[in-house]
């Protein structure tokens, strides 16, 4: 899986926000606010990933056990799917 194009990750004060540009700005009103691990996963998803590689990256970057990281990744990717922000390969769909 990989993020669709047309989104910018930007720091706004203490927050990290995702702002749609191009056609994404027409299709999606508003913006997304991310916490630290969300921003980390968002950046990782600029390239093709699986849930396993995301969990691995998260456990390496944060002081978090695999079970918690897996739950975080599932929750985050479910949210992205809900808003149709992911390009899925057959393997990840």
């Amino acid at each position: 899986m990989k993020l669709k194009e047309g989104f910018l990750l930007r720091t706004l004060g203490d927050s990290v926000v995702v702002v749609p540009v191009g056609q994404a700005a027409i299709d999606m009103r508003g913006m997304i606010t991310l916490n630290g691990s969300g921003a980390f996963l968002w950046q990782a998803l600029q390239e093709e990933q699986t849930e396993e590689t995301l969990v691995q990256s998260l456990t390496q970057a944060y002081d978090v056990d695999e079970e918690t990281a897996a739950a975080d990744v599932r929750r985050f990717t479910a949210l992205l799917r809900q808003h149709d922000l992911l390009c899925e390969t057959e393997e990840t769909a």
């Binding site: 194009e5 047309g6 910018l8 930007r10 702002v19 540009v21 191009g22 056609q23 700005a25 027409i26």
Partner: peptide
């Protein structure tokens, strides 16, 4: 311009 991501991104910045 919504269709041009680079210039639209400049608007965001």
């Amino acid at each position: 311009p919504y269709y041009q991501d680079a210039v639209s991104a400049q608007a965001v910045d």
